[in-house]
Design a protein around this nucleic acid. Structure first.
Lengths: 132, 132
DNA sequence: ATTAAAATGAAAACTATTCTTATTGCCGTG
DNA sequence: CACGGCAATAAGAATAGTTTTCATTTTAAT
């Protein structure tokens, strides 16, 4: 499964790529910075250089295998792209990320954009929240 | 008007701060990166160090005088905070930023967050669009 | 197996931003 | 108006996340 995805992206199937993709597949819905992923790989006895992590994540992103997000302005995080679009809520106290999908919200965005004579290409939406 | 705002923020009224605030006031609704602002100041014969620009923008942000946005992941931009909340559309072709406010969108966000048992603290929303 | 093309690790380079340090400028008090 | 204290400044060094370079290794197609 994963090997095929890498090949379909026009990339060679290498150990680093397999190990990174496998880890993200095993942790769907979780978000990792490049550095965090680097540490996880080390912990799993996979010796991958940080530069390779960055390179592979970028390649995976353009291939549509992973999504990149920027919850905090100074560090990007990545997650497996499951193909199902969703937005994020970030608990400002705990840092926990909650994924959600709201059809009404999606429709509303398209409507707003069209009212201005545009077409919606992409969007970025993060709600910063706090437990009541 | 502007002097008072700086004072109310607990900051001393200095030339750099006045010049930066004046420029942003004269260009409401436009967005400037620190570097761009630095160049604008130089062009206006105001000799302000880049570090000062960053420092002052941060202070203005915590004082609520300016808003910081991150349309492109590697560079923050700032605009005068007029007190009226709005979101942004970015034309992916021209780079043009369109500000908009949609009451329904705001309400919907609160609703979504409350359904999960949270309180909305802040949000970030950018629609990437293209001319039809 | 052979071999060209692509991928890797390590270190250097880059870029936006922040910090350090010595100096300057604001402002309340006398 | 002069003084002294302390915040603000400029300049450049430092930092952190990320990207690039380059020599070496690995992949995959024959």
């Amino acid at each position: 499964m994963s090997k095929k995805d890498i090949k379909d992206a026009g990339l060679k199937v290498t150990l680093p790529r397999l190990q990174i993709l496998e880890f993200l597949t095993d942790h769907k819905g979780k978000h990792y910075s490049a550095e965090a992923l680097y540490d996880e790989m080390k912990a799993a006895d996979h010796d991958i250089g940080l530069a390779t992590i960055y390179r592979v994540l970028n390649q995976f992103e353009t291939a549509g295998l992973v999504c990149k997000h920027q919850f905090e302005e100074n560090q990007a995080v990545y997650e497996l792209d499951t193909g199902e679009h969703h937005d994020h809520m970030v608990d400002v106290d705990s840092g926990k990320v909650i994924e959600f999908y709201d059809a009404e919200l999606e429709k509303l965005q398209v409507k707003i954009v069209e009212e201005q004579g545009y077409e919606l290409i992409d969007h970025k939406m993060v709600l910063y929240v706090k437990k009541k």
